[in-house]
Amino acid sequence: MVSGHSSYVMKHHDLPIEVHDLTVSYQKKPVLYGVDLEIEEGSFVGILGPNGAGKSTLIKTIMNMIKPNGGYVKIFGDRPRAGIKRIGYIPQKESVDWDFPVTVFDVVLMGRYGHHGWLSRIGKEDRNKASECLEQVNMLAYADRPIGNLSGGQQQRVFLARALAQESAVYLMDEPFAGVDAVTEKTIISILQEMKKAGKTLMVVHHDLASAKEYFDQLLLLNMRKVAFGSVSEVYTHELLQKTYGGKLAVLSEMATEVAKNPEP
């Protein structure tokens, strides 16, 4: 099994994300078993795995939204609650109430909430930052629109702007490419790449095997346990993908034949 670059990382407390022997269950049904993970600064990691593999659960546990049954998570060496401002998060689209009376600008401004205490006011700087981030995803023209009037791809770009406005060091994203057309997918991936260049650490749940190979630097293969974690060339192999998806999916055999045809360098 490939276990990343942990061998030569000496200062564990400096790691943006460290997951140790993490076990999580929903109503006594285990979803994740003993996951170990060490993510270095500036990593761009794709999380792959079949439905119900625990991809979202892993992310939510790292965010401290779900309490683990065993093991721990450390963010820059701290327990997650203390470090929570340093992580930006994009939840799955389905968990959002798109009919809520809120404008695009208000949504992006939410990215600034984490920087403020319960009662402190949102200031001009926050507004400027929000406009700047909207500009970055090419959505400034839509600032005053109700969020519900936007197309799926535009909504996803607004979410990305909100994440940018969080100015975090680490980002966890749950399927940012779901329900998005090809053009938007390109825009999103180029913004993610810029974020990586700016030294951000990114973990992205992804569902498309074919594009995963091109998008990410490292892959985490997950199926209730960590199947493999490492650079794309190490992990994206017929054998490991087979192990992750259990050979059940049609897409897998397709991908497997493709991998067999052009073996990765």
């Binding site: 939204m65 968990s95 909430y113």
Partner: peptide, 18 residues
């Protein structure tokens, strides 16, 4: 502010500690 964000996006709201 807190009610706005929990109403619109409860997961995100949880993630920023509300």
């Amino acid at each position: 502010r807190q009610l706005l964000v929990t109403g619109f996006d409860p997961q995100f709201s949880k993630s920023i500690g509300i």
